[in-house]
Design a protein around this nucleic acid. Structure first.
Lengths: 347, 347
DNA sequence: CATTCCCCTGACAACGTTGTCCAGGGCCTA
DNA sequence: TAGGCCCTGGACAACGTTGTCAGGGGAATG
């Protein structure tokens, strides 16, 4: 039996290793390591020889091996709901900037709002031994993360709190934002106000609904069952909801929308509607100022969410061991016109 | 000197390893490996014992070690220009979906349009031994990638071709799209048409400029130097360009914009302008249909770009060794009103 | 000139996993 | 009953890197 079949697998295209570099330069393995890592204690002459070998062979350090040896991967994981959602773009970018400032790479993926997929993704990241995790949770039970957190994987939740475990979280003030948005509509004379939101199992969605209910109650207004519609953000679903609210003898005169995707669809439907209907939306949307009327929104600062979460994460990685905390960032009402439409004069 | 200082570094919070699991279950190391990987050759009874130990200890396989041993990381790198740019969201998402379908994770980062940062990021990904790379290049010289590609890192460029090396690329038809967009304006009677684009060193920007020039030449129209403005997409810069084009005795009557960010700014400026000015923009923008007038655009399919590139990448990873090729995806003109504004009647 | 000290260098083990190979035991067949 | 085969399980090396430690040579000092 020939023994040239020893190589078990097609390796990394047989990349040169430090051993190869060392052999070519006629030095020891450790000396190469020193040069590669810029450690002191190498003569300029030796260093030059090693560097020459590195360039000639096209050597690049294998970080997998390095990670295995050192125990830190210098990478963090980001699990969000949908990479394509414009709301998460700035958040993603902000996290990346902070990671970069700390010399870490970012591994990310979308859960597509599916708890199983979230878990799968999170655990895959843990198996990669990311140093930390930033998660926009889709599910409501994160006990599966307990062994990981106990084992030292720093974890920060963003946009929505963790379910059934105690963990850091950075949130926007969904309740307060929705409450002030609805109060804004009430202040402009509306009494029949609709709410179209995301699925109630999503924390932000239910908080915003709560804000709506509270604002209505504060003003002593009763809420008709037909005025509240919760469900997916699919355009068809939202469109049907708007149409239903605007039909009948007592249609709503204003609508509060629970997130950017809902808002966009509602704007489209209202543009085709004959009567003006007031609108305030949660989340800012691009070009909202150029529409006619401009769309009044409750803006949250996605970049600040991401930045705050990432900074918290690295703070933990630097050794902070204080109790998990929730940070709530304020929202801001931006009046652009659609929220200031008065209700039609009552018959 | 006490010898309890042997542990060199703060490791992964001392996570249990297969060795720990094996010891607890009273089996050999390889048996644990077999159970973890679902390999055959383990009695149900033994398997149950091992599984119990895994659960009890909270063991999770260390993929770093696995990668080191196996030579494949099951991860791909994506380097794009700006994670926060809405154009790249769907692209990012499409790449992720394909990666997921192939069981790979996605590591990504932004180059911020800085060639040095692009190189730094790409090489960091190579050091991680990603199986493949998808790059939206910021620089024009990718010879630094040659050793990596030779070593087996599959690489596909998207949106812009690679510089000075021969590599796969998936592009949108920038030239043809711009040409047809400008032709559209000409067909609606415009003769003095401005072009506001991104920095000319960016391939798509210069291709779109070329499309503009060709369409003008095709129609026998001369181009005044003042009609062309290239530079960053900073709102201030773009705004100044628009104002300049609309000033003077012979202002442009139509503008073609080179990308989504430029378009957005121009829409804002034109909204405040007294005379109507026709506009066609490269890249679709959200809510473009709801503006008044609707914004006519040359739409490219960002998701298709990402999907095509990722599929090409995995095709290569599956062993395809054909020559590098360029795929050009068509663009689509979407007329919504702004491009169909006629020029003012000449005095 | 001898001694000490420091600087440079390299041998070696270890990180956690998987591929290879071998041993032992049970079962089937002749 | 003996022989052989298959099935299960484990010992061992290797992946490429870095931390530890020890050795060797030169300079500085007495």
């Amino acid at each position: 039996m020939a023994d040239n079949t020893r190589r078990p697998e097609p390796r990394y295209g047989n990349r040169p290793t430090m051993k190869d570099v060392a052999a070519r330069a006629g030095v020891g393995l450790k000396t190469v390591s020193r040069v590669v890592n810029g450690e002191p204690g190498v003569t300029p002459d030796t260093e030059r020889r090693v560097q020459e070998s590195i360039d000639a062979l096209g050597f690049r350090r294998n970080d997998s091996a390095r990670v295995l040896r050192k125990g830190r991967t210098a990478s963090i994981g980001l699990v969000l709901e949908d990479l394509a959602d414009p709301f998460y773009g700035p958040l993603n970018r902000a996290v990346e900037e902070v990671a970069r400032a700390h010399g870490a790479l970012l591994i990310n993926g979308s859960s597509a709002e599916d708890p199983d997929r979230e878990q799968e993704l999170v655990l895959a990241l843990c198996a990669r031994r990311v140093d930390g995790l930033i998660v926009i949770p889709a599910g409501h039970d994160h006990r599966y993360l307990e062994p990981e957190i106990k084992a030292g994987v720093a974890t920060v939740f963003v946009d929505r709190p963790a379910g059934r475990i105690d963990a850091d979280a950075v949130l926007s003030d969904s309740f307060g934002g929705a409450r002030s948005g609805v109060a804004h509509l009430i202040a402009h004379g509306h009494r029949r106000i609709g709410f179209i939101g995301d699925q109630p199992r999503i924390h932000t969605a239910s908080e915003r609904l709560r804000g709506y209910r509270t604002a209505m109650a504060d003003a002593g207004l009763a809420i008709d069952d037909d005025w509240v519609s919760l469900g997916t953000t699919a355009p068809k679903r939202v469109q049907d909801a708007v149409v239903a609210m605007l039909a009948g003898p007592e249609p709503v005169t204003a609508i509060f929308t629970g997130n950017n995707r809902v808002t966009v669809t509602v704007v489209r439907v209202l543009a085709a509607h004959d009567r003006p209907v007031a609108l305030v939306g949660f989340d800012d949307i691009e070009l909202a100022d150029l529409l006619n009327p401009g769309v009044t929104v409750i803006a949250q600062d996605a970049a600040a969410l991401g930045r705050t979460a990432a900074e918290r994460l690295f703070h933990r990685l630097d050794g902070a061991a204080d109790a998990p905390s929730q940070v709530v960032l304020p929202t801001r009402l931006i009046a652009r016109g659609s929220g200031e439409i008065p209700p039609p004069a009552e018959a």
